[in-house]
């Protein structure tokens, strides 16, 4: 059942892929016998054949995931999305602090320890990666603005 569902979703995507390959992709001019559209066409046919086979003989019947687990997974994905959205606006330190604390608390770390972990990960991570290893991490728009205004004050 689940197999068929997943294969169905993939089939829709593959059909869309195939339609684009057969109609939309076209090189304005070309000298080679195979253009940019041929390879996607071949691939889409292979993929559709595989998907139809899975429809014919599905082998996974259930996901075997409890409802509470679904909830936990959904929450994790939501946190990851929030983390990516906040990464630049809040900066690495703050967003990591929030994300680390939230995920750690949800996974049963206890709120105090989660907070300690989040803070440590945010601050130590920034010091290690941005300062010591010189990697490019966002300082955060808020912090940058604060820094700028203090710079201006210092200059004036």
């Amino acid at each position: 059942m689940v197999d068929r569902l997943f294969a169905g979703v993939l089939l829709v995507a593959t059909l869309a892929y195939a339609v684009i390959a057969f109609t939309a992709i076209k090189a304005p001019f070309q000298y080679d016998p195979l253009g940019p559209e041929s390879w996607p066409r071949i691939l889409s046919l292979v993929a559709i054949a595989c998907l139809l086979w899975i429809f014919w003989r599905p082998d996974a019947s259930a996901m075997g995931v409890a409802r509470r687990t679904w909830f936990r997974l959904g929450a994790t994905v939501a946190m990851l999305i929030a983390y990516s959205e906040l990464y630049e606006p809040l900066g690495f330190v703050l967003s990591t602090l929030l994300f680390g604390t939230a995920l750690c608390a949800m996974l049963g770390g206890g709120i105090v320890r989660a907070l300690a972990f989040g803070t440590a990960a945010g601050v130590a991570g920034y010091l290690l990666c941005a300062v010591l290893l010189d990697l490019n991490l966002p300082a955060g728009e808020l912090i940058e603005r604060a820094m700028q205004s203090s710079d201006e004050k210092g200059a004036s």
Partner: peptide, 10 residues
């Protein structure tokens, strides 16, 4: 696990 998992994401 509750430290390891967030660490992987970070």
């Amino acid at each position: 696990q509750h430290y390891l998992t967030p660490l992987i994401a970070i």
